[in-house]
Design a protein around this nucleic acid. Structure first.
Lengths: 194, 194
DNA sequence: CGGACAAGTCTACGATCGTAGAGTTATAAA
DNA sequence: TTTATAACTCTACGATCGTAGACTTGTCCG
């Protein structure tokens, strides 16, 4: 349903990519257990059996989908931490990314909605531990960089969850500037630290 | 499986309570979609059909379970905000409650694991909006109390998610004191504000 | 002691899930 | 144009889901 589900000549690579894109969408919307292979396949304009043929099974498809979704990280960390005022930069980026109308990031939604599946949660842990946390931690200085990186991610994830997934009105309907001003000193503190 | 699934005489009230307790457990572990009526019933030592008989259906059972689980709030807010150093008190309570060995709070887990279900998420929003946020907001002073209350909950929820649900090692394996010291100024800022 | 009514179970339905292998069709080289 | 092969679909299995009404059994009052 993403772009061109219609009229795709028998092109294995393109079909595979279309299935993966559809999987990202459906996994993000319904989580690992809630997503059906038939629904994913329909989104790519094929049948469920082709999915199995290309990816081997649901687990492998999920692993590839979550890896792909995570290539666009939970929060765009490039540069934002090197900013002159990193706290403000993170706050602004976070508020902007999660604005009520915007589409939530697949990577986060897949993790959130798949939390109930033991297998999916395990994959999720590996993904978070490897990619975003290491990235953030590498850019910090001082003591307890790993803990501070994890807390930055906690705040980012918690804010996303409350604002987008739950739709908490105090966050969804508020002036972005107010939220930015409240978040900035928190991130500032975590980035710079004593 | 909680306590006494064996040898309970034909007592409607006790059976109903046992089913509700089992439902809390299973919903917390597997989420709305992942939980099966048969599994819930087995945990209470009855059959699935009795669940339907007492609660009418899965949705009603879920609504009652989430309401019951939320009577023990996501974070114990009583008193903690009136502490002399509320930021430190919240941080300490949060770190203590989420210590790796401890059992996560049902209320939070049910919400987290049921996020993929549209219907369940709607119930979750109402629960969060009504109970914890209003409680926290009522105890704050100054400007933007609702936004600040929502951000406190965001940080609490994000920390719980990363530490317990995901099991992020930087949070799960770290010295509690370090985490407390990092969290304290964040909560302090949100509680007191400018 | 014995019936009445609540408490609880049995069997089964239709739907949907992931998976499976055999079958069909379009494409590209000869 | 013929043909080989990759691309793709069809039909179906076994399991599990929520739901449903008929059935059985334990408990308490008279």
């Amino acid at each position: 349903m993403t772009s061109e589900t219609r009229s795709r000549k028998r092109d294995a690579a393109a079909t595979r990519a279309a299935i993966l894109a559809s999987a990202r969408e459906v996994f993000a919307r319904s989580g690992y257990d809630g997503a059906g292979l038939r629904e994913i396949a329909a989104g790519a304009g094929v049948t469920a059996m082709l999915v199995r043929r290309y990816f081997g099974g649901k687990e492998q498809l999920f692993a590839e989908a979550i890896a792909a979704a995570n290539s666009a990280p939970i929060i765009a960390t490039e540069g934002v931490l090197k900013d002159e005022h990193p706290g403000a930069a993170i706050a602004q980026a976070l508020v902007q990314i999660t604005e009520p109308g915007a589409k939530p990031l697949d990577g986060f939604l897949i993790l959130l909605n798949s939390a109930s599946s033991v297998r999916a949660a395990q994959i999720g842990r590996d993904v978070i531990e490897c990619a975003p946390q290491k990235t953030v931690a590498a850019m910090l200085e001082g003591e307890n960089v790993e803990q501070r990186a994890a807390l930055i991610l906690s705040l980012v994830a918690g804010f996303q969850m409350m604002r987008q997934a739950i739709g908490l009105s105090a966050l969804a309907d508020s002036d972005p500037k107010v939220l930015e001003n409240l978040l900035t000193p928190l991130f500032e503190r975590l980035v710079k630290e004593v």
